[in-house]
Amino acid sequence: MLTGKQKRFLRAQAHHLTPIFQVGKGGVNDNMIAQIKEALEARELIKVSILQNNLDDKHEVANALAEGAEAELVQLIGHTVVLYKESRENKTIELP
């Protein structure tokens, strides 16, 4: 579980990132979650964009992504989700 200070730090780190995944009308599936897990292992911090044609509630999509990838939900702003998971091999982010 992240503290408020850690989330604020991660939000600042994620500000310049561009979304590398998009959730469309197909919703969240196992293949997407597997790819997100791999990306989190490589990068630790990623953004995921929820497209307008996705009819699911954005909060449910964000929670499904976080639970499926076993990651922390840092932020949901607009239709952009920020996820963090500490990497085992490629640790680059030092939390305060």
Rank of each mutant, 00 (worst) to 15 (best):
E89H: 14
N90D: 07
I77H: 14
V28F: 01
M1F: 03
V61K: 02
A71I: 06
F9H: 13
L83D: 06
E60M: 01
A64I: 01
A71L: 09
G68M: 13
G24P: 00
N54I: 02
E41L: 14
L65N: 00
L76Q: 10
P19M: 11
L10A: 04
E70A: 15
A39G: 08
N29G: 05
H16L: 11
N53C: 09
I36N: 07
H16R: 13
Q35H: 08
G78W: 10
D56E: 11
L17P: 12
Q75T: 03
N90C: 09
G4S: 10
H15D: 13
T18D: 14
L51K: 05
E94K: 13
V23D: 03
I50Q: 03
R43G: 02
A39M: 08
R8S: 03
E89Q: 15
P96K: 03
K47Q: 14
K85G: 04
Q75M: 11
M1I: 08
P96Y: 04
D57T: 05
Q35D: 14
E72C: 10
E44S: 00
V74I: 11
L45S: 02
E86C: 07
T92L: 09
L95T: 05
D57V: 07
A69C: 09
E41V: 14
D57Q: 04
L2C: 08
Q52V: 06
S49N: 12
L73R: 11
I93C: 06
G24M: 03
I33R: 01
H15V: 05
E89W: 11
K5V: 13
V81D: 02
H79R: 15
A42I: 11
A14K: 09
K7I: 01
R8H: 09
A39S: 15
V28G: 06
D57H: 04
H15M: 11
Y84G: 00
